[in-house]
Nucleic acid binder design. Structure first.
Lengths: 283, 283
DNA sequence: TCCACTCTGTTTATGCCGTACACGCAGTAG
DNA sequence: CTACTGCGTGTACGGCATAAACAGAGTGGA
């Protein structure tokens, strides 16, 4: 067993598997277990039991629980498809990746529960990170801003996933649905009458048809990024040499061909115009 | 001891404290402990030791660890000032509240670590929630959207706080600063050359002067909300009876007085225009 | 052939944790 | 005097991660 956690994560899977325990088998068993019971339901004992070995046998292959979780993370990250259709426009690309990450978190809810800032990324995690950063290349954002946007988006997905996970877990553990549970907290509702805004929103039905938390948040976030990108675009245009000034597509930020007719162009392609239109309509 | 968790949270503090244990004393000791050691460093044994009683004595006053955490949460929430200067404009108000929540999480890092969706809110938490929701009253947002925005903002603050907390904890536990730790992961950096976008961003200094994660995210988020509010304002204007149509302030959304001169007004007051200007300049 | 060494898995034990349960004791109301 | 209630204690159970010593099987060299 390698004792450098980096070496362990970036190890190459042995080609023909030998009998007995192996890092790969341990990680796969742990992932299955965590998929079912969540991260805090994952214990070295249970992993070992599932594989038919003693607890301590795992430590021959994996330094400890924390590193096992790191390995699981990278295993799960490998599910990110690498051959996404290359859509035009940073917005469409970013949204697609965010939804993908969201999907993976639905399959592996524990991913969002992993805590700590010192997790060494494995090859799949790095590939995915690189891929995310790449979606913003070609925009006028500064490097530090690209990184900040991707970080923000990642934390957003995790936060939303966490919400989902915890709801699910508590429902399974208690056998009572979230709605039912809150519905029977009568002694709480009795006291909420004092609070004017909550009462008003309650009476106007704000809680009856809630927004889809993930899609709502994603849209706000992308709108916020769009505002920044437009700002940077404007700045870029203004500082560009007057003679070589070019307008950019409102949807994807690419440069526009000069318009044939007198009417200035807004989008670089029919696809972009349609996307913009559809987004407006969706709401 | 009340066995309904709601009753416990909404209990009234006894006026003249008697000797011995009490819910209030337990909660305060627990908060101090968690402030220092984080949520996972909080144990019933330690709380009891700090108070000079046996572990099990706590259970006479508090049903269990989970409920103790609920009580601690509400205790911490009571630090939200209730008499904020009432600024004009939803944006300024929302930003102020978010920064306040952020401040509180710096004092009580464990707040962001509390997991689970079924925490009964206590009186302070509800008051604060009501206060947040109220910031968006008067905008054209629909009720469900008001709720979604506040939820989103809350999760954002928690996610950012979590990042901070974990960095701090790992630094204290290991004695090695975050930068130092990552700096000595040589075997990792050796492998990052394969990834083109990461490499490019690295070389252009993207990681050398990172954005302030909280302020950056907050601005993006508020920009995203602003986009939505503008959209709703437009819709409201369009569907309003033609004769009584009124424009709204681009900054705060309030209705505008009709302009005296021919030039249409954009802001409702000098204060609003200055705010908008300052925001643009800040970046 | 024998020995040393390594690789893999086991056994045992330590020290945390939350909390169930039975008990002791003081104050009090009937 | 008695029964009861409220508060704090002591002991014990089952769970957790993991340190340390150990056992056996396979292997390479003398």
């Amino acid at each position: 067993m390698s004792h450098d956690p980096v070496e362990l994560l970036w190890r190459e899977e042995e080609p023909q598997p030998r009998p007995g325990l192996s890092v790969g088998r341990i990680v796969r068993a742990a992932v299955e277990l965590a998929d079912a019971d969540g991260l805090e339901g994952l214990s070295m004992r249970k992993v070992a039991d599932r594989l038919g070995f003693t607890t301590m046998s795992l430590y021959r292959h994996v330094p400890g629980r924390d590193q096992l979780v790191d390995l699981m993370r990278d295993e799960a990250m490998s599910e990110h498809p690498t051959d996404l259709p290359q859509r035009e426009g940073w917005r469409a690309r970013l949204a697609a990746i965010a939804r993908q990450a969201w999907e993976i978190r639905r399959r592996h809810p524990w991913l969002a529960e992993v805590r700590g800032t010192r997790h060494v990324p494995g090859p799949h995690a790095v590939a995915h990170y690189d891929h995310m950063l790449a979606t913003l290349e070609g925009t006028a954002l500064r490097p530090s801003e690209v990184i900040a946007v991707i970080g923000l988006l990642g934390r957003f997905v995790d936060a939303e996933a966490l919400l989902l996970v915890e709801t699910r877990r508590e429902e399974r553990r208690s056998g009572v649905s979230e709605e039912e549970w809150w519905g029977s907290r009568d002694s709480l509702y009795e006291r909420l009458g004092r609070y004017p805004t909550i009462t008003r929103l309650w009476e106007s039905g704000g809680w009856d048809h809630p927004e889809d938390s993930f899609e709502f948040g994603l849209r706000r976030l992308l709108d916020g990024v769009e505002t920044l990108i437009r700002e940077r675009d404007k700045y870029r245009d203004e500082t560009r040499d007057e003679s070589s000034r070019a307008e950019t597509c409102q949807e994807c930020g690419n440069e526009l061909e000069p318009a044939a007719s007198g009417r200035p162009r807004v989008y670089c392609s029919r696809a972009c115009r349609q996307r913009a239109y559809r987004r407006r309509k969706d709401d």
